[in-house]
């Protein structure tokens, strides 16, 4: 439907307004991650600062300040090293005065504070956490794609007795809140000796995830049955049909499954929180949360960490946008 120009202008207006609202938190995150401890919390009554500033230093690395009381009000000077009774000594071209910290402001210039990233990387074992996260992601992707496609094949393309009952079971378990099985599963993994290992996070992926089984089944159903029949006449067995005909035709659906699984595991929190205990096993999400809980309101480093764990996802999203949108559309519409 082609809209009238007027409608389109109005739409543009609202879209731009909404985009700004949606994007502002991201900008704020990056901006905050580049601010120093001193500037990240604005003084009472000052507006938020979008562009990070740092203290202005003179050639000798001393801070430049502006007085806001006393005879030198409004003049700029430099802060000398020496302090007396916790008052700061400030030099105005040779003349010095003593001042309390609230009597002057430190001059600010635009500049980035990369220290937060160093702090954040120093406080968590980033490479190790990244490796753990990717390891879990990759294995879960392999497991999910493999198991869900075979199961979906069985539900979509093999007419066996009891199939429908089984499939309804799959749909029903999608409704089941994870809290119901949370505790007994913990007990099961405990008796298997799996608590404190990656196994509780990975092994279930190899036994099918209802949501993706459903997604792939819907996709397999759309492939004409004649193709299987033709292959069968050619002497192809069930596995051959699955591997040579169905799978190659289902790459978009499988890519979607892989992508969603990857994203889910990348950000998954509760399971790693419960099952991983050694800090060398932590995933990025858990490491970020642990970091946050032990350094509450260390906003600079926290924003730096958040930026670092978000960026890979954003990159992946840009590379795979089409698959993504297709996938979401697929799951939503056929529901």
């Amino acid at each position: 439907m082609a809209s009238k120009p007027k409608v389109r202008y109005v739409a543009h207006f609202w879209l731009i307004a909404a985009s700004i609202l949606f994007f502002a938190p991201f900008l704020w995150m990056v901006s905050s991650s580049l601010k120093s401890e001193a500037t990240i919390i604005p003084k009472t009554g000052q507006p938020p600062q979008w562009i990070p500033h740092v203290d202005k230093l003179d050639a000798q690395g001393r801070r430049c300040v502006i007085m806001n009381t006393g005879p030198f009000k409004g003049k700029s000077g430099v802060e000398l090293e020496a302090q007396e009774e916790s008052q700061h000594v400030i030099d105005f071209n040779g003349q010095t005065v003593k001042a309390w910290p609230e009597d002057f402001d430190v001059e600010q210039v635009i500049g980035f504070e990369w220290e937060n990233y160093k702090t954040a990387f120093g406080m968590i074992d980033f490479t190790n956490n990244l490796r753990n996260t990717l390891f879990i992601c990759v294995l879960c992707v392999i497991g999910t794609v493999f198991s869900c496609s075979t199961v979906a094949y069985s539900f979509a393309r093999i007419p066996w007795k009891g199939r429908n009952v089984c499939f309804i079971l799959v749909l029903a378990t999608m409704m089941l809140p994870y809290q119901v099985t949370l505790i007994p599963l913990f007990a099961v993994y405990r008796s298997l000796g799996w608590v404190g290992t990656f196994k509780p996070l990975i092994v279930p992926a190899f036994f099918g995830v209802p949501f993706y089984i459903f997604l792939l089944r819907q996709f397999f159903m759309t492939i004409p049955q004649d193709m299987s029949a033709a292959a069968r006449i050619d002497g192809c067995n069930e596995f051959g049909i699955f591997a040579r005909i169905i799978l190659p035709l289902s790459k978009p659906a499988m890519a979607t499954t892989a992508l969603f699984t990857f994203l889910f595991e990348w950000g998954d929190f509760l399971n790693p929180l419960i099952y991983l205990q050694d800090d060398r096993q932590y995933t990025l999400a858990v490491a970020l949360q642990q970091f946050q809980s032990s350094h509450e309101s260390a906003w600079g480093p926290l924003m730096a960490m958040s930026t670092v764990i978000t960026i890979p996802i954003v990159v992946i999203f840009f590379l795979t946008q089409r698959t993504f949108i297709q996938g979401i559309t697929m799951t939503g519409l056929k529901g």
Binding site: S147, T150, V151, Y153, S154, F155, I158, P159, W160, K161, G162, R163, C166, L169, V170, T173, L176, V180, T181, I183, P184, L185, A187, V188, P204, F206, F207, G208, I213, E238, F242
Partner: peptide, 28 residues
């Protein structure tokens, strides 16, 4: 043959369902 193949292909889920859903459900 279909039943055998169907169960074979669905077996990951059936095993997973028994071990990671049904048993925990009953225990819960």
């Amino acid at each position: 043959r279909n039943l055998r193949n169907g169960l074979l292909f669905a077996s990951p889920y059936i095993i997973g369902f028994l071990a990671f859903t049904l048993y925990p459900l009953l225990m819960s």
